[in-house]
Design a protein around this nucleic acid. Structure first.
Lengths: 351, 351
DNA sequence: TTGTAGGCGTTATCAT
DNA sequence: ATGATAACGCCTACAA
């Protein structure tokens, strides 16, 4: 491997001078700079960041620790946001996945510490409460898409599930819907309760009686291995004589199953039934026909801004207790429509 | 930061002895080992890998370069496979995404070189032909889910799209289907042609006349921003008086749209129409009801085994020209069924 | 403006 | 079995 000394020899200067040129330090003549740069290009010299880091105590590496990367494909956007920030700011990203295993996680923290990375983004693939298993290791950390359990202190950046769900419910009310179904996410997810609370609050604020809300549980059990009731519940709810005119699903994957249930009953979306989701998981939300009205989660920004918060922290400028909440916007597409004035058609089909 | 010298001082030995203990080298008394380990635990010492690497010229870091990480969520499994291999073998993973931009990519190669990583896994999110833009930088590299363009030489590991598609077609023929529809992937994808070729070959081998095959283009245009004809084509094909009894979709996302088209025509899956996909993108394949018969792509293994190939290469044991092909298995679920003997019901509905 | 000496944390080499 | 010394590639501090 060609080192700074090789460059110095070829350029006929000292290694310190090469260092100066490489790092853009002042007090070097244009002439010298050129000589050095020529030698660098000639030899294909690329500085050794490891060597640099043992002097400077800064690696410019940030680590990402993820939990269940495979089960929630769309939140890969968080990682992409982090990467883009890193690329734009001269940092590199170390990645490690724990699969939710605390032993593995503790190893990851050790490994990251061994690499002397500047900071850690602790990324949950579902918005949830976490307790990082860092063991003895201490590295500046920001929680992304997650929140520390009571008694633990970390800065965090999270989506505004409540606000998104509230706005979505308002959207339905504005379209004239008065009888609304709701299929709940796995209650283990932080978003599940926030979204349901917002739904109930917004419905009440919109003057809808609680008896006009039909609420069903869509999933339960350990995250990643849950039992799924969505199709069955949707089928059941949509077969009611006084079925809702709009159906809110905990997320887009649930909305997919609601579509299938509705279609198999001979109901048309949105003419006979308005269906909305949450997440804007585009494979689903754009793959469905008609395209799905949903709430976009700011995954990419969670990553980008989370990286930014971490950077502040590393430089001693960030707050240890900040909890930043990012807006979730309603994306209105064709699956939601004004409630028809005609008598809705009765569900038919093979149920 | 506590260093090897601090440990040596506390343990009352030389730093080299500490190094021996840390690295499990022979010729240290059990007594000394204990003293040292005690001091290590006391001080919370964690070796500095950067410092180690400047002596040993090995970083135990492998880099992953991805292209379009966001658009194809399921292939995140490749990255997971790599990570799991790395975790199991004491390596760490540097991650960088190029978004398909050659300038960004060249920077990534430089950065990786600056970190003196041991090797690179060049991962395409779609199975396709690639030309790594490494510039002047040279690092041992294995192509994953991709293949070098003519004139370039890299070892690669790829899925057997042909074999998977062939087996899938055989599955349909075995179920008695004689008139089969096919919706093609974007022709830009390597898998698109391999899958279509296998379909045609298997159909011919199964004694099916070409006139009984209905082939339509589902997508075209630049990857990630393609124009989508799937829903329209499925609707059209399923409205034919002599419509196919089985429909093969280029991938699972296309199968989703085929489901919607079929259901909206009042057709039931699989009673009236068998639908199959490709990829086993589980959000879709398990989210669809009935669950989707499809072909599982070995993404995770692509990652794991790719990392393994790279490791061989790094140690001078691998082949520069190996092209490893991994099997794709048919996953038979409920969306494919024996062709009914009764006259199929005619499509109805609002088309 | 440029160079020299020394040190960062670690391991290789060679003594002891 | 253990240690002293030098070296890895780079940067800091200081001198010239």
């Amino acid at each position: 491997m060609v080192s700074i000394k090789d460059v110095a020899r070829v350029a006929g200067v000292s290694d310190k001078t090469v260092s100066r040129v490489v790092n853009g330090e002042p007090n070097v003549t244009a002439d010298t700079i050129e000589k050095v740069q020529l030698a660098i290009a000639d030899l294909g010299y690329i500085p050794n960041l490891a060597a640099r880091s043992i002097r400077s105590n800064r690696t410019n590496i940030i680590g990402i620790i993820t939990d269940f990367i495979s089960t929630t494909p769309y939140s890969g956007d968080i990682v992409r946001g982090v990467q883009d920030w890193a690329g734009a700011n001269g940092r590199t990203v170390l990645l490690a996945n724990t699969d939710g295993d605390p032993t593995r996680e503790t190893n990851v923290w050790r490994t990251f510490k061994a690499h002397r990375i500047d900071g850690v983004l602790y990324v949950a693939m579902y918005h949830r409460v976490v307790v990082p298993a860092a063991g003895e290791v201490s590295i500046p950390t920001v929680l992304v898409n997650s929140h520390p359990e009571d008694g633990y202190v970390y800065p965090s950046i999270e989506p505004d599930d409540f606000g998104g769900s509230y706005a979505l419910t308002e959207h339905l009310i504005a379209l004239g819907h008065r009888r609304i179904g709701y299929i709940r996410l796995n209650p283990l997810l932080l978003g599940a309760n926030q979204r349901l609370d917002a739904f109930l609050t917004a419905a009440q604020a919109g003057g809808i009686a609680e008896s006009d809300l039909v609420i069903r549980l869509g999933m339960e059990g350990p995250v990643g291995r849950e039992t799924n009731y969505v199709y069955r519940e949707a089928l059941d709810m949509l077969s009611m004589p006084d079925r809702p005119t709009a159906l809110v699903c905990g997320n887009d994957e649930m909305a997919l199953q609601a579509y299938l249930a509705a279609l198999s009953l001979g109901l048309r979306v949105p003419d006979d039934i308005t269906i909305v989701g949450f997440d804007d998981f585009r494979t689903v939300s754009l793959g469905l026909k008609p395209e799905l009205t949903t709430v976009a989660l700011p995954y990419y920004d969670l990553g980008w801004q989370g990286a930014n918060m971490l950077d502040q922290l590393v430089h001693g400028k960030g707050s240890e207790t900040e909890r930043r909440i990012l807006k979730c916007l309603v994306v209105a597409r064709q699956s939601s429509a004004r409630r028809g004035d005609a008598t809705p058609r009765q569900a038919i089909g093979s149920f």
